[in-house]
Write a protein that binds this DNA or RNA. Structure first.
Lengths: 348, 348
DNA sequence: ACTGGTATCAATACCGGTATCGGTACCGGT
DNA sequence: ACCGGTACCGATACCGGTATTGATACCAGT
C-alpha cells in the first residue's frame, strides 16, 4: 500500500507552497484565481483528500455534531437522526451518531468517547441523565441540546415535549369521548423512561376522574418474550392477553404505535370492532397506523422536526455564540382521535 | 471556557513525563505499577480525556469503521447498522455512519469525507457504485466490505445475496402454488437499484413460463405522491389502484414488505380475501407483517446478521491482515409463503 | 569490581495540517 | 522617483499526542 497523499504532494504538484495549497482547497482568501484552479486540479489528479486529524488538531476546531440516541430498532430515532442529517446538509457540519441501547452506562461511555472527538455540539436524547453524565455535558464546553423530553431540568437547551402531559392529554381526550374502562399495554418501561412518563400522565388524568387502569400488561409478565418478537407481534399477543382477561375494556392505551398497531391486528383478526367495541390509543403517529386510517388514536410527535430544530439550534449557537432561538422549544404532540372523533367533534 | 486539559497537564499532576503518562493511560508496557496508578488518578482528578485527533494523527491509526447506508427511513438499514454496532461492541473499533439518500453523488462525497477520517475499514451498501466511487474504495487501502447485494463485481469482500435471484425464486415459489396473473407494485425503482433487480428477477421467472406482469405500478405514475406518505400508506393506495384496474389479479409482488403490508390493509378493509382471492408477496420479512401472520409471502433477509458479519469480517481482516472468512458470504433469503404454503407443501 | 541484561523513564522527532506573520510584487497617487 | 496600500505567497511555529531512541538505575552472575 503506497503512502497516502498529503498536502505537500498537492503543493508540489501544483508548484506552490503547502500553505497556498491549504488555502486554495479550503476556499480561504489570499489566493489568486489561477493558483486556486491549479491546486484543485492537482488535488484531483493525484487523488488527494484531506486528513481531518491533522486539520482539526491544528485548527482546534471540528465540524462534528455528536448525536446520541437510545436505539436504532425503534424507527423513531432514525427519523430524528434523519432530521438532523437534513438540517446539517449544506452546512459544513456533520453528524456523528452514537447508540446507547437505553443503558445509562453505555450512554456515559458513548458521550466520553464523543467528547474525545471534540465535537462542535451535542444532541442527546432524553433529559434524565445520571449526575455523572450531566456533569460531562456541562463541562463539555460546547452547545448541548437535549431532545425528546422536557420533563426535568435541561443541562442547556432542550427541544421536545412533556411525555407525562402527552399521556395526560390523550387520556382526557379519550375520556371525553365517553370511554371509561381503560387498559394499558406496554413493555420495556424500566428502560424506556419516556414511555413510563406517558403512562403516569395517563394514570394521573384517570385519577382526576376517579378512575384507574382496569388492567395493565407491561411486559414484566412473562406472557411475551419482548426480545424475540417484533413490536407489532408483541402488541398483538399482549392485546389478546389483556382482552382475554378483561373483555369489558373499552379502551387500551399502548406505550407506542407499534404495539397499538399489533393490537389492532389482533382485533381485526378476532372480529372485534375498533373503535366501537374497544378503542385503541398509541403514541407517535407512525406511518404504520395509516394502514387502517382512523382506527388508532395517537399523539403525533414531530420527530424529524425535533431533529431538525436541534441541529439548527446548534448551528445558531455556533454562529452567534448565543442561542437566539431560546433555550426551550416545545413541540406539543397533536392528538388524533381518528374515528373516535366523529362522535363528538372533528379536529382537522 | 477554560483551556482543555492535555496530557501534559496529567503528566505534570502525576509528576512524570508526557510519555510515561501516555503509556500509563493506554496500558502500554514499560511503566511501573505505582506510576500507572499515579497517572490514572491524576487523569481522573483533573477530568482529562484524550484527544483523538492528536492520538490518531501521531499513531497513524484509528478505531473507526465507516458504514455507508442509503437511507435511515427504511428500517432495514438501521437494522444493519444495529448489527454492525453489536458486532463492534466490546472491541476497540467504533462505527461511524453516513447516509447517501440513494444518491450516487452524495455517496461519493460521503465516502470522500469518511476517508478523510482515515477509517480502519469500510462497510458500504450496494455493489453498483459508479467508477469514480469504486476507485475511491479500491485506493482506500483499508478493508472494504460491500453489503446487501452480490449481483456484480465486488471491490473486495462482499456479504449479502442476489436480489435478482431473490425475485426469481419467490416468483417460482408463487407460481408453483398455482398463481398465474401477477401484478407488480413498487416505487423509487429508479433509485433503489436492488428493488429493481428483484423485479427483474421476478419477471425473468415469469418469462420462463411464458408469463409477464399483467399490470405494473412503480410510482412513476403520479397516482401516489411517494414522498408525502408512509410506505404503508402508499402500498395501500397503490394496491387499491392496481386492483381497481385489474380486479382479476391473483397475486401482487411488492417491492418490499411495507408496501405489501399496505396492500394487505387495503384488502382487509375492502373485504378482499388474502391470499385466496389475491395473494400478496413482499420482501425482507419485516416485523410489521407479523401483524397478520401468514398473510403475506416474503423473502426473509438476514439484515442484522449481514451487518454483524460485515463488521466481523473487517475485524478478522484487521487482525490477521488477511480475511480468513473468505471474500464472499451469501446469506440467501428464506422464502416464507405463509398461508399459501398449506395448499401445497409446508416448509418450516 | 566488572559486565550484561532488564526495567523504567524522558528527550526528541515527528504525524499532516493551519494560524500567524513577515515578506515581495505591483498598483495608483503625488 | 517615492510612498502607502493591497494582493498574494511562503517560512515557521505550533496543535496534542505517540514511536523511537537513548539514558539511567538496579540486579545477578562471574
Amino acid at each position: 500500500m503506497k503512502r497516502r497523499k498529503t498536502l505537500a504532494d498537492v503543493a508540489a504538484a501544483a508548484g506552490v507552497s503547502k500553505m497556498t495549497a491549504s488555502r486554495a482547497l479550503r476556499g480561504d482568501k489570499d489566493v489568486s484565481q489561477t493558483n486556486i484552479e491549479r491546486v484543485k486540479q492537482a488535488a484531483r489528479e493525484i487523488g488527494y483528500y484531506g486528513n481531518q486529524f491533522a486539520s482539526s488538531l491544528s485548527s482546534k476546531h471540528t465540524d462534528l455534531i455528536g448525536v446520541v440516541v437510545p436505539s436504532l430498532s425503534n424507527i423513531v430515532f432514525p427519523q430524528v437522526m434523519s432530521g438532523v442529517t437534513d438540517a446539517l446538509k449544506g452546512t459544513l457540519l456533520q453528524p456523528v451518531f452514537g447508540v446507547t441501547d437505553y443503558d445509562p452506562e453505555t450512554e456515559y461511555e458513548t458521550l466520553r468517547n464523543m467528547l474525545s472527538w471534540r465535537p462542535a455540539g451535542l444532541i442527546v436524547t432524553g433529559i434524565d441523565q445520571p449526575p455523572e453524565t450531566r456533569q460531562l455535558l456541562k463541562d463539555a464546553g460546547v452547545p448541548v441540546v437535549q431532545i425528546m423530553d422536557i420533563d426535568g431540568h435541561p443541562v442547556d437547551a432542550c427541544i421536545g415535549f412533556s411525555h407525562s402531559e402527552a399521556g395526560h392529554d390523550i387520556a382526557v381526550a379519550l375520556f371525553e369521548t365517553g370511554l371509561r374502562r381503560f387498559g394499558y399495554v406496554g413493555r420495556n418501561l424500566d428502560k424506556d423512561l419516556r414511555a413510563a412518563k406517558r403512562k403516569q400522565g395517563f394514570q394521573s388524568a384517570l385519577r382526576d376522574h376517579g378512575l384507574a387502569f382496569a388492567d395493565v400488561i407491561d411486559g414484566s409478565d412473562l406472557a411475551v418474550d419482548a426480545t424475540a418478537h417484533s413490536a407489532v407481534e408483541c402488541g398483538r399477543r399482549m392485546t389478546a392477553d389483556i382482552l382475554n382477561r378483561r373483555p369489558d375494556l373499552d379502551c387500551i392505551y399502548f406505550s407506542n404505535d407499534d404495539l397499538a398497531f399489533g393490537g389492532l391486528c389482533h382485533c381485526i383478526a378476532a372480529g372485534i370492532d375498533v373503535p366501537r367495541k374497544v378503542a385503541l390509543a398509541g403514541f407517535n403517529g407512525l406511518g404504520i397506523i395509516e394502514g387502517f386510517p382512523g382506527k388508532i388514536a395517537t399523539s403525533r410527535t414531530a420527530r424529524k422536526k425535533i431533529g431538525k430544530l436541534a441541529a439548527r439550534m446548534i448551528l445558531e449557537t455556533l454562529e452567534h455564540s448565543t442561542a437566539e432561538m431560546g433555550k426551550l422549544h416545545i413541540l406539543k404532540p397533536e392528538i388524533s382521535l381518528g374515528e373516535l372523533a366523529v362522535t363528538n367533534d372533528k379536529p382537522d
